[in-house]
């Protein structure tokens, strides 16, 4: 399977503070959904931010299609590797403006109605104020605005943790749909193993800033991944 993103010996620390990432290795195959799981404080969100260089790693490298991302223009990198956060943080006077924010900055044409339809929202919502939407709908808008840049990969940072069960199911279905229909490479940070079981093809385990290995979903949930699953749940 073609490797889309490779993380090699990645380290990160703030100033003189303790290291949050202490040498993380991970492989992310193209066109698949890779889940990053681990106990809270493991460095999962930090790893995602280092991949699209919202933060500058203090050591190691991230490769995109075999190319070191430290050599890429960070703005171009972020357009190629989109990101969806835990909270939507939409800006603009209308939902349409919010969807087209990044595409307009990049000087690209995009159709807000079509993008809204892509995430299962009624295109007529484009004229509404973002605050008029439910949190679940806002989260789908934040996925639409990432898709507006036609990214090659999508980083999802606990995208359903602020949602209720119904909205969570909708977003999970959307993740599977985007991966299936567009062949998007997706990295999903999650703390919920049941979600990983429903969505992910591959699982990478992170604990205390170190990578503990990667498994296919079946392996991970079979006897082989038992040690890793115990690590995540915090049970000895």
């Amino acid at each position: 399977m073609r490797e889309k993103i490779r993380v090699s010996g990645l380290r990160y620390a703030v100033g003189e503070g303790a290291e949050i990432l202490k040498g993380v290795d991970a492989e992310v195959p193209g066109g698949r959904i890779t889940a990053v799981v681990g106990p809270s404080g493991a460095g999962k969100s930090t790893l995602l931010r280092a991949i699209n260089r919202l933060i500058e790693p203090t050591g190691g490298e991230v490769y995109l299609d075999g190319e070191p991302t430290s050599a890429l223009d960070p703005l171009e990198l972020r357009r190629r590797v989109g990101m969806v956060f835990q909270l939507p943080a939409l800006f603009g006077a209308t939902v349409g403006d919010a969807v087209l924010y990044g595409a307009r900055l990049a000087g690209r044409d995009a159709d807000a109605g079509r993008l809204l339809a892509m995430v299962g929202l009624d295109p007529s919502l484009a004229g509404r104020h973002p605050d008029a939407l439910s949190v679940g709908q806002q989260q789908r808008v934040s996925m639409a605005r990432a898709l507006a840049l036609e990214p090659e990969a999508l980083l999802l940072d606990e995208p359903t943790s602020a949602l209720d069960e119904g909205a969570r199911d909708v977003v999970e279905a959307l993740i599977l749909d985007l991966n299936g229909r567009l062949g998007l490479t997706i990295i999903l940070v999650s703390h919920a193993l049941d979600q990983v079981g429903r969505v992910a093809d591959r699982v990478v385990v992170l604990a205390a800033g170190r990578s503990e290995g990667g498994w296919g979903r079946e392996e991970f949930f079979s006897g082989e991944g038992e040690r890793a699953r115990r690590l995540i749940s915090g049970r000895p």
Binding site: N52, R78, G102
Partner: peptide
């Protein structure tokens, strides 16, 4: 969060 969301969109 809003500033980082904008940066993540290539701002």
């Amino acid at each position: 969060p809003a500033v980082e969301a904008a940066l993540a969109l290539g701002a």
